[in-house]
Design a protein around this nucleic acid. Structure first.
Lengths: 342, 342
DNA sequence: TTGTAAGCGTTATCAC
DNA sequence: GTGATAACGCTTACAA
């Protein structure tokens, strides 16, 4: 069990008594090689434990069969799900996925994109649409196929996503419809996150459309954790007048809010309604279950893979794929309580 | 904004009016090049938007500064967290991470390992210790540094993990200490998952040590989802005698179990106690909060990165890093109810 | 059907 | 300090 150096194509060729070209053909186009030779070669491959070297292959063939994805973080359940599905779809097509994470930092994202290009990625998956023009320039100068996901793309950039602002407006209209007028929002951190920012914008739009003062909406931003959702909720309840409904930028914040509401002795939804966004597993498991926007993250990942593969293959494809999201009405949103001050 | 082919080292060399060797030096050992030349070269790099080609570099230098990780799935929160930390630590050291997922299938894992070796990974992170001997052979024949995580390694294989069986035994002893004698278990799927299997074994060991019949322990296996935890709980409650405590193989199953218990009109922990494992965020957020085993997933990921980097560098290192896990006593585990038939 | 040989983009060893 | 030039492991015309 000693450290043998990695065997190369020529090692295999020597052992099998053929040329390197034949070995290469056996591995890539077995049909071009006669059975007897093929068996001899494969036996040598087996014996030496040969694995093709990716760099050599990529360099010679100018193809990598690789795509890259730059996501903000794996610790967000929605990306974990979506990327898992994205990967499964790629694997099915014989393509390898390289994942990098940017920590929501556009500079890091640009850096990671450079790295992935350097690694020969045939195409890229990126999250959201907001990034420096320089990053788009880079992509386009290189003719690098890319797909944006989890949001709509601007211009004619290819995307597989949905309108975060519109969805947020939809859930807000529902809240208004239930009679709420004192509304607060717990948003995800909007800096460098167009999805979070769009959701805030959507809520404001809906308020404005209903003739309310959108600027008066109290918004507290919070990182993606139950605990931060809880804290933000408590802070929001200090606002006067106290909100009867709290719209959250994602389900994790909403679950945190529900928990704190209960701890504060507020009944949900009798005293205060709470809504989420994303419809991750826990949304239907929390009590009361969360009224939220259902986003089919896995389906989005799969569709993104399909589009990206088509773009890479240079096939004709619908470049702008809008994914349907749905309002899921559950127990956490109820009618506004009767005001006692009438 | 047209598709320019990727510029190469010689393009830069030509534009800067120097040799490719000089350009290479500018990028890798700037100290070896005089300032004036360096500036000229860097300007050319900038102008052309040159990015080094990874394959060419890897081929020539026989180094990749890349490590690979093969995890079962990104959809499990504990891996998402641990891998995120692993990646951050690597990035800090200038090393790129390639992530692949195996779907808990040892054959796919072996396949992914081959791919990562082919891509020139300098080292690998693998989850758990149970895999075919052939996989270990492959690794060792190649002299490929690797680190196992989330479990102890056998022999002197390097690992950063903890004793799943021991931890499960610990929580079981606590359950026994609270007076429970009718115990049931909801386990993760144990096929091809040594962590899940070890946890079942640990529970049985503790029962045996307490003089109970370990073989009589009702165990239901369930996939990693709230819903499956719920279903398994309901099934387990049909068992006679009905368990007064249900030990779950992970927090997700436990949260599912708690929810169903409430829906069945059983108070937790008054009527039935429920415990988890992992201590993911939701464990402290569910009501009642989950008694569970706290595993520092991020710390494990960071430590795994450190060990792997040391092994790759050929440095002396403690190869067997056991991570401390702790029993977190919370509301979901209470004293056994008094038997009415006693 | 198989072999020969010319690259692919980089690094690294020599000279100069 | 800088420039030729030979690898690195593989694919792919083109020849045989």
């Amino acid at each position: 069990m000693k450290d043998s150096p990695r065997p190369t194509l020529s090692d295999v060729a020597r052992v099998a008594g053929v040329s390197t070209a034949t070995v290469s053909r056996c591995l890539n186009e077995p049909g071009l090689v006669v059975q007897a030779t093929r068996e001899r070669v494969l036996r040598a491959v087996e014996e030496l434990g040969y694995t093709p070297d990716f760099s050599g292959r990529a360099l010679a063939s100018r193809r990598t069969n690789t795509v890259g994805a730059v996501i903000p973080t794996m610790e967000n359940a929605i990306f974990a799900r979506g990327i898992q599905a994205f990967q499964e779809a790629l694997t099915g097509a014989g393509v390898t996925l390289l994942v990098a994470s940017s920590g929501y930092d556009p500079e890091q994202e640009a850096q990671q994109i450079q790295t992935l290009i350097g690694r020969g990625a045939d195409g890229l998956l990126l999250i959201g649409a907001a990034r420096p023009a320089s990053t788009y320039d880079l992509l386009k100068r290189r003719g690098m196929p890319f797909v944006l996901a989890w949001n709509l793309g601007a211009g004619d950039d290819p995307f597989v996503g949905f309108d975060n602002a519109d969805a947020a407006a939809r859930i807000t209209r529902k809240v208004l419809e239930m009679g709420h007028r004192e509304i607060g929002m717990i948003a995800g951190v909007t800096a460098m996150n167009d999805r979070a920012a769009d959701r805030v914008r959507g809520v404001r739009n809906a308020l404005r459309d209903a003739g309310l003062d959108a600027d008066a909406l109290p918004v507290i931003e919070a990182p993606y954790s139950f605990e931060d959702g809880s804290r933000a909720f408590e802070a929001l309840m200090q606002h006067s007048p106290r909100p009867t409904a709290v719209i959250c930028g994602n389900d994790v914040l909403a679950v945190g809010a529900i928990k704190r509401a209960k701890a504060m002795g507020l009944a949900v939804p009798e005293d205060v309604s709470i809504t989420g966004f994303d419809d991750i597993d826990i949304a239907s498991f929390v009590t009361p279950a969360l009224t939220t926007i259902h986003v089919p993250h896995r389906r989005m990942g799969t569709a993104a893979a399909q589009l990206l593969l088509q773009l890479i293959a240079g096939e004709q494809a619908r470049r702008r794929v809008e994914i349907d999201v749905e309002l899921r009405m559950r127990g956490s949103l109820g009618p506004a309580p009767q005001t006692t001050t009438g």
